[in-house]
Design a binder for these strands. Sequence first.
DNA 1: TTCCGACAGTGGGGTCGCAAT
DNA 2: ATTGCGACCCCACTATCGGAA
Length: 508
Amino acid sequence: MLLIDLARTSTAVAADSARLTKIGHLAELLGRVGPDEAEIAIAYLSGELPQRHIGVGWAGLQDPPDPRLAATATLRQVDDLLDRIKAQAGPGSQAARRSLVTELFGALTRQEQTFMMRLLRSELRQGALDGVMIEAIAKASTVPTAEVRRALTLRGWLPAVGAAALSGGVEALRAFHLEVGRPVSPMLAQSATSVAAALGKLGGPAAIEWKLDGVRVQAHRSGDTVSVFTRTLDDITARVPELVEAVRALPSQDLVLDGEVIALRPDGRPEPFQITSGRVSSRVDVAQVRAKTPLRVFFFDALRVDGADLLELPGEARHAALAAAVPPELVTPRLVTDDVASGEAFFADVIRAGHEGVVVKSLQTPYAAGRRGAGWIKVKPRHTLDLVVLAAEWGSGRREGRLSNLHLGARDPRTGGFVMLGKTFKGLTDELLAWQTQRFLELAEGPTDGWVVALPPVLVVEIAFDGVQQSSRYPGGMALRFARVIRYRPDKTADQADTVDMVRSLML
DNA sequence: TTCCGACAGTGGGGTCGCAAT
DNA sequence: ATTGCGACCCCACTATCGGAA
């Protein structure tokens, strides 16, 4: 199949906002693709690459060569070239990559170039990714959607699942099963603003667990072989030897466990996320960083114990299996209750202990891998500050032509100026985007660089955030974590905005 | 007819490791 | 040694479609 077929389908998918129409276009194409190119087609049209990553990003895609007029590139040819790009390593690899990228784009028409550019930048913008592709695969292979989802849960990679469905139907999908050593898409949580709200959503007794501010891990054990995977299914076994040892020391020889690793201080309080993240990211001299920053693991779910797949079991049964397989010091602390007051008290204790929050979990729901299932609801405390808008950046995609990303500053009483603490684009409605674009342009002073519009510090905006972290990027040495807009504060002037000292007092 | 679950899109800060300068 | 870049950790929120209620 030719790349132009995919590019045309992508254009058609993007052209109509109706999901059923998108599914129709995608299914039509999947009906035409040969078995040897099905994985490539599914990957590209759901916004990913069979190679996952090829070491080329935004900077490596500048200045493509002139497009060709005739479309001749096949999926197989493009895939081979991406393989070669990914394979480059060592001195001279950047130049080699650049030259191969030029070769690739030089073989494409304008429409194909646009498609490839978006794909490689992870900005497909056709209103269809995995979720829509799942439906298209089901339609093209006349298989129930639930069967595709089930297989994806267990295999973790849609192109492989889709190719199987297209060539072998339901039978081929049924052949996918939980395999020790191959990661499962982890179950995700929804959010609520309070424990009471979370309990209300679930109705009835629920488990309230510590939410640790660390890195999600999925540990697999088969005999002496232990593998550890992240939320995105990357293998980090070599970086977390303490976890490998802990799992190997368990009596059970056959395990798949879900949990979190985190660096704790000697007094048991958590290190800032930056410390845990840095430790888990380190690949060189692991023994050395381990001695300095040991990791602890806390498991909260069991997907397999001693030959039994537990995914379909209710949460409480899975937890019972976990508690039987793992000693209590490796299990995430929890409270099972339907009493709002004791739940809120538990939450307050967790926050006092320095942790991120809690996850309220249904006792009934199965492990809904890869989806933000309604069975898990996270609750975190929310801080707010009144900050001053210092500048704004032009948005892209559906925010093109709108001033979107706000630069936020706190008042510095010593200088009378403002200290930037970070940016945010979150929490803005279309209406607010339109309003602020107009208002900012009225206020803007002086020329802009076409990207950032500087503003006089007069507008006050209420910002929610999860915490203050150390920063080497911003002049105050601190930045807000997960900042989002709550509302503008027209009732406040800039000299009533919160101060850097107040922000600094939150950084502990 | 209204409600709501799921999805896609739009980006945020920080860290590490590698290649280039 | 320092800088630029890609990849990955953590992530919040709104708009939209279409099935559920």
